[in-house]
Write a protein that binds this DNA or RNA. Sequence first.
DNA 1: TTGCAAATGCAATCATGTTGCAAATCGTGC
DNA 2: GCACGATTTGCAACATGATTGCATTTGCAA
Lengths: 142, 142
Amino acid sequence: MCFHWRMSATADLLRAAGVRVTSGRVRVLDSLAAAAQPLSHADLESLLPDADRVTLYRVLDSLVACGLALKAVDARGVFRFSASGAQREHGGHVHFRCTDCGGVFCLKAVPPPPPKLPRGFRLAEVDYDVRGTCADCVRRTA
Amino acid sequence: MCFHWRMSATADLLRAAGVRVTSGRVRVLDSLAAAAQPLSHADLESLLPDADRVTLYRVLDSLVACGLALKAVDARGVFRFSASGAQREHGGHVHFRCTDCGGVFCLKAVPPPPPKLPRGFRLAEVDYDVRGTCADCVRRTA
DNA sequence: TTGCAAATGCAATCATGTTGCAAATCGTGC
DNA sequence: GCACGATTTGCAACATGATTGCATTTGCAA
């Protein structure tokens, strides 16, 4: 019998997203995927002590840029990152951002149609941002 | 005839809130009330060039503590403050942001209905943010 | 295997927000 | 009106989070 070594699913995700597979990206994405809550840069730094501070920032940015991670701001003004449920189109649907833990949740709702603009205005982007407190944080602070 | 000098409404607000009336608090609260959108510390610094950086932070904190101002975090992770008295509904309100000149325009469009949230989630704000180029900038760059 | 664009590591820098302490100020009691 | 004490201010230093420039290393495709 012959078992081919199966490349990690994480590496496949990275390849599918069209970015290079590097140890940094694999480890960071794995950490994000394993985390129950969105992680800050500081969280990841203590989780991956070998990683360089700046590289960590750049890895996170690249993951966000290629759609594999989501970036949000928590109540203290710190960026927090989470693995995006992946391969899901992240345009064309609505996100809920928890202002407490910085989590981003994908809602089933369909984004509303673009509104009518005053004469001469040119539309580029529409952002339907829903903010509040997620169930976990509601329970935790109750 | 005798006209009593009418203390500014802002000073009255401060007194009513149980904090001392200082020039810093009056100027900051006036700025917040006059602003069309929540202001960052940097905004206020350029709006009130005489004010000390740290004092500004402390004034803002005191206004938040006594309930006269609201503190929130913007998408870039920066704290923004708004006068809470000024009943400016900035949730459920449609904005058009010109990516060229940075101007913000309040659209008359009806805000879309809040989407259905998963069980336990608490809604705080809905921001329907529309970006593009305003008529002036379209004309200027044409 | 080799070449090259992309990614990394390091140092420096910026931006935002906080703390400690002496001097100035507000508001109260006289 | 005046003086006193608690708040507030201004300044300097510090802390944390995030970004930039550049030389070196690495992924990956020819």
